[in-house]
Structure formats: C-alpha cells, structure tokens
Design a protein around this nucleic acid. Structure first.
Lengths: 404, 404
DNA sequence: GCTATTAGTTCGCGACACGAACTAATAGGT
DNA sequence: ACCTATTAGTTCGTGTCGCGAACTAATAGC
C-alpha cells in the first residue's frame, strides 16, 4: 500500500478509468499476443463490450493491429490482435567510456539498426559527433516514426534538473546532456544511469518468472553499479543517487577508492580488481619478493577472461577472487533487500561456469535471508544497457498510470 | 513510473474515479484540517461541485464532521470540515522481548488508553494472556468502535502466509499469530516487523518535511532492524524478509553473530555491543592483562546510558564506539539507497547530543552520495513501534487505491 | 439444415467529474 | 437601510465510462 503524496498527486477524471483499462489491455496484448478480444476479457476481468471499445480505440491509434483468425474447437473463430511493433521507433544510446552505441528499436525492443562510435572526450564534442549520426540513423529508416531518445550512461543524473552530475569514467561532470540532445535532434530525451537502465531492461524485457516484484541489477565493469526495481518500480532515491552500493565499504579501512573513501566494494570486485589480483600473483611468482614488476605486461580484463577460458590457473584464481568479493557484496543486497532475483551484468558473466558457484557460495556464507533470491547472469547478447533505454521511453505508454 | 503487474492487477470501473478522489480529499482533510470545501477544491484541483458531493459522502459515512465556520476577509464564511477522530478505534500491539504494550488509538494515532504486560515465553501462552486484556481494553471504551488490530514484533512475518516465521529475541518461530489473534478477538489483524512499523509510523505521523518519498528507519536495540519506505511505499522484499541489513557484514570474518555469520553490523552497533565495549574496557583496566572479569558486574545498556549522562568517560567511549559503527552501517544505507531521511529509533537516541555528531562524522567519512540525507533521532515519546501498528491498519482507508 | 457453442457488437443504465449558472452569506461603502 | 463586490457552496445539464443483457456472426458436429 502506497501513501498518497499530497505534494504531487493526480485526481481522477471521467477519462481515468479508460486510461487505466487501456494500459492494462495494451500490456496484456504485448505479453500474450496474439490474443482475441474474448480472451482479453477473460484475462482482464473486463466485459467483452468494454474490451471491444478499447480494442477499437487502440487499433484506431495504430497501437494494435488485427491479424489472422484463430481456431477454437467449436464456435465462431476469434480475430487475433497483435501489438503493432512499427507504431513508433525509439532511439537508444548507450554511452560507455570507450564506445557509444546508438540503435533504432521497435516496440518489442528489437533493434532494427545499430552502430557505434568512439566516445568523445568532452560532452560538447560528443554532442557534435553524435547528433549527425542520430539524424542519419533516423533517415535510414524513414518508414519508422521515432518518438523519443533514451540514454544510458556510466554516471549520475540529477532527478530534479535531469542534468548529468558526474561520470568519472567519462571524465564528464555537470553537463546538461538532455537539453543539448533535445535541441540537436528535436526529440524528447530521457537519461538514466547504466545500472538503472539494466534493471529496467530486465524487468520489462527479461525472461524471468512472471510477477517479479523486486529485481536488482548489478553491473560489473571498471566500477560496480546497482539498479533496484522494488515494488515494480525503479528506486532513484532523493536526488537520483540511489544504487551506489559499489561505494559502500566491504573492507573497513581497506584499499583507497577513487571516490576518496576506503575499502569500497568495487575496489575488490570490479574488473580492475581482478586484473590487480592477477598482476599481484604473477609478479610475486616471477619477480620474487623484490616486488619489481616487469613493465608492459599488465593484461586487460579481456585478456584475463581469455586466459581463464584457456585454463590458465592464475587467471582463474584472480577471477574467482573477484567473484568471491562480488558474492560478498551481493550478499548485502540479498540480506538487505531480499529481492526475487539479482541479475549480474558485465563481461564476467561470460565466465559464469567458473564463477557462478563461487558467487553462490559467497552469498550463502555471508547472507541471512529466507527470500530464496535467485542470482542469474544477464544474457550479454540482449545488450541490457542499450535495451534499458528503450524501456525508459516505452514506460510512458506501457507503465501504470499515475493516479492519486 | 511503475510497471503493471499482469499477475495481479485491478481494472477500473465507474466507481474507481470516486475512490481515488475520495481518498485524496480524505487525506487533504487529515493533513490540513480544519479546511473548507472551497479550499479543498483549490488544493486538489477538483471542481467545487465534486468536492461537495464527496464531502457529503464522507460526512454521511462519519469519516468527516462539519465544525465551526471560518473567517474570510470578504464573502460568505466557509464551513470547516474536520476528520472525525472517533470514527474508528484501532488496537495497537507492540511486542517486545520483555514487555508487550497494547493500546487503543483514534484516527489521529493518539492513544486514548494503554497498558502493558510481560511477554509470555510461548506464543500460545502469550495469546491466552493477551486476548482477555484486549477484550477488557475494548470494553473500557464502549463508545469507540474498533475496527482492527495492528501488531509490531521483533521478528519476521512471511508475506504470503502472514505466519510469524521467526523472532529470535522472543524465542518464537513458525506460529500463526494472525489467525490465533483473529479467532480470539473477532477482529482483523495485521502483523509487521518492528522496523517496518517504525518506518510506517514516521512516514504517516512523523514531522518530516512534506513530500518525503524515501525514508529509512533504523531500530537499534539488542539487534538492528531496517525499515524502508521507497517511492512512498514499504519495501517488503520477496517474502517479507527485506531490511535485514543488521545481518550484513561490516567486518569481514569478524565476531560471530547469533545468525551464524560473522562480522554482522548488529554485532558491532547494537546495545549489546556497547555493553561489550564497556565491559572490555573496564575489565582491562581493573583486572589487568589476566583477562579475569569480576563477576556480577555486567551493566545493562540502561546503566550505560545513565553513566554517560552522569559524565562517566568509559561509558561515553563505549557509546561513541557503538555510534561510530552505527554510522558506518548507516553510511551503507545512505550510499546505497540515498533516502531523503534516515530515522534512528532506540534507547540510544536519548544520548543524541553525545552521539549525533559521531554518527554524522562516520556517515560523512564512509558514504558517497549527493543526496543530502538527513539523519535524525525519533522522538521516543511518540512510541514509533506502537504507532506504526496504527498506520498499518489505517493504510486501508488512507492509502493510495490499488489501481492497474 | 438444425443445434450447440463461442466471438463479437449494440444499447440502455447508472456512476462519475466537469463546468456554467444559481443561491447563500458576508463586509464595506453610501 | 440598501447596494455592491466577493467568496462559499449547490444545482443541473452534458459527456465519458464500464456494466450487463440482448443481439448478431460464425463455426463444428450431427
């Protein structure tokens, strides 16, 4: 049960009931298509007459199309309704430190076109390079009417002003990316932190059991981000800063983090941490105890993954060390939030067969819960960061109406 | 924006709009009383005619009463509407390890009668002793029609079955307290964990700035509990287990906790921890290094608080040590959840002038956020655990309607 | 071609919010 | 004492909406 916020609420008018039922019907069509009006009535609890009127409206507005007839054992054949995937296109932009991906998606969050460009050093330059590419992408598919742009970025967006506050891995801070992009493209833009985007992608398009109410996404790369869907809703916190569990202490007075504090989770469980573990182990062996490390031999995390797949024991030890710390942090989320599912996103998931059990073991050892939280890797092919940007824009049409 | 849960949603009927607007008006009256129909229309955005109809309905159902006339500079005088506090009574029950408090409250969460009894050793015996006391309390005030019972307890209630799963400090486990109480009293019963109750109490009756969307309650006694209101809504997790941050590791491989894990927050920041710090310091001084502690001298936490107030330096050191660890744990909540406000509940708040700055300093040193989370002590006189039980029952009438 | 069955539509009804027009009440000016 | 401006609150006609009964459409089996 939610408390009504008397500082910002929405009264109901005569059209409110239609808005609510329309969204319910639209969502049922989205998730159960193809489906007949009769089944919609049965599954929603609405009268067949009401469903017919709503369906007519959705067809008139081109959200839904009427397709082939179905079959029944007896009686008149149902006329199937489908979601009209081509109704609107959405531009998704995934900004990462090295590369930015832009894509054009349909209503199913299926990408019909996609390309990448190097991420520029300054936001101004980035905008200058990005806007023409977006324009080109839209022109490539003139038959698709784009209605909005979603952006996922490794940083923080202020909830009230929607300004980019900081993005340490990009080296950007305090920039009005939203307005700049809107002016450049003429389309509305929604920004969101990468971990939050992933959480949205998983709850809207993920293949989890139905009715997942609480889902946590953990993005693991150079840092660690956490996106929380609790009570079916993204948790953004007071200013949009919620989810910085990567910067909570997992080792008191431990190693220094670039955030200025010590012992942060991401210092011990990020990709960089695994590289550090590997280098430390390797240098100890190779150079003895003098501590001098041969220059030019620092591997990338990708190298480490490849070595692990090839059976390199030192690489595997490093990866497992990282996974153990990952599990210790995830145990905090399991114990504190007790979600139905935690989704891990990042290059590390490619080695799930090596680390899945390590994480599970660490979680088991360090958590205290009966929630039965499942911990699963995200399918990297689904491009969660990018796909979340589509959800960000689609929410407007498919999300629950704001009421009271 | 919330995702619609297709496994459990609610379609709108013609009455839905009235339900929504009625709740909005009722909440406006609750928080702004006395208030005229005209002001209600202005503050809600509804038409004066609509407000009049709704007000008439609320008066007919005795939720609202029409009181004295107000004054305006010019024009007809407004007729003030008030919340009818006597409309329903609610029984609140606060179960604590030593003592259980039962109270009868009105709609303002003001307690009109209250009494305590020792908490029995077994749930069966507890029910047998409690039910007659509840009956007596109801009979004492025959003019108040009680409509429900709210229960706050130091343990966990399964979300689906509403059974008490475990309550280590009571020594109870797996008991159907709800059904037992409902059969004994004939009234509907709502159970909730104590920290969650406190969070509800603070969001419904607390004196925080208006429009607080995210609030976290931290209860500190023999253990540590966390109740989270995020997006105006209690976070219960998959099975009702959310909030066990007290059992997340703050020291890796630290002291053993009764939960079976090591280094849990509550091992370092609960009342018992402060007592341990004090005893350790005292025994070191008094008995030297042989480690033998004089028997019969273990103080209670209350003793410690009294000593601190009297200026005992060793007691103050122990309390400050506890406060530092409390702050380290709160820093996790600040960083991870970025709430508007964190409310600390427990005996420790009586020493806020000693520990407030210690907590603030620890939070500042160990957190990473721009949320500007305020950390405040709860007023112990407001009896947050007990008051939350009233919110638990009132939500049904004053909470946002469940829609879509 | 008849019957049972299922899909989908039509239409009258009641609930609801809106908003314009109306009545009620009051202070201040003349 | 009366008029005017102003504010509070009510009345009533209108349009939107979902309900549910009655109706039409289509199909398989006999």
């Amino acid at each position: 049960m939610r408390k009504i916020d008397l500082t910002s609420f929405q009264v109901a008018t005569s059209e409110t009931a239609r808005d609510i039922n329309r969204r319910i019907v639209l969502n049922l069509i989205r998730s159960q298509q193809p489906i007949s009006r009769a089944d919609l009535a049965r599954n929603s609890g609405l009268q067949r007459s009401t469903v017919s009127v709503i369906a007519e409206q959705l067809i008139a507005e081109r959200w839904v199309t009427e397709g082939a007839n179905g079959h029944t054992a007896r009686g008149r054949r149902p006329r199937f309704l489908h979601l009209n995937k081509e109704r609107v296109g959405i531009i998704g932009i995934n900004i990462r430190p090295a590369t930015t991906t832009i894509a054009l998606a349909d209503l199913d969050a299926h990408f019909v076109a996609q390309e990448s460009l190097p991420t520029a050093g300054t936001p101004q330059q980035f905008i200058a390079e990005l806007v023409p590419r977006i324009r080109k992408l839209i022109k490539m598919r003139p038959e698709i009417a784009c209605e909005g742009i979603g952006v996922s970025l490794p940083g923080r967006v202020d909830l009230a002003s929607q300004r980019l506050v900081f993005a340490p891995n990009l080296g950007w801070s305090d920039f009005d990316l939203k307005t700049a992009l809107e002016k450049g493209t003429g389309m509305s833009v929604a920004l969101e932190n990468a971990a939050n985007s992933c959480a949205l992608a998983e709850i809207w398009f993920g293949r989890h059991a139905h009715g997942v109410r609480n889902l946590v996404a953990v993005t693991v790369s150079e840092g660690i981000g956490v996106g929380m869907i609790l009570n079916h809703q993204l948790v953004q916190g007071a200013t949009g800063m919620a989810g910085e569990f990567g910067h909570t202490a997992i080792v008191p007075d431990g190693l220094e983090c670039r955030c200025g504090n010590r012992g942060c989770w991401e210092v011990y469980a990020s990709n960089s941490a695994a590289v550090r573990y590997y280098v430390e182990a390797a240098s100890t062996v190779r150079t003895g105890r003098n501590g001098v490390r041969p220059a030019g031999q620092v591997p990338t995390f990708d190298d480490l993954m490849r070595l692990t797949e090839q059976g390199d024991p030192k690489a595997e030890v490093a990866i497992r060390q990282m996974a153990d710390y990952l599990g210790r942090g995830i145990a905090v989320l399991v114990t504190g939030l007790a979600p139905d599912v935690i989704v891990v996103i990042g290059e590390i998931t490619r080695a799930w067969k090596h680390i899945g059990s390590v994480i599970a073991e660490a979680v088991k050892r360090h958590s205290y819960t009966r929630a039965g939280t499942r911990i699963v890797p995200a399918d990297p092919l689904s491009q969660p960061r990018l796909r979340g940007t589509i959800a960000l824009v689609l929410q407007k049409h498919f999300g629950a109406p704001s009421v009271a």
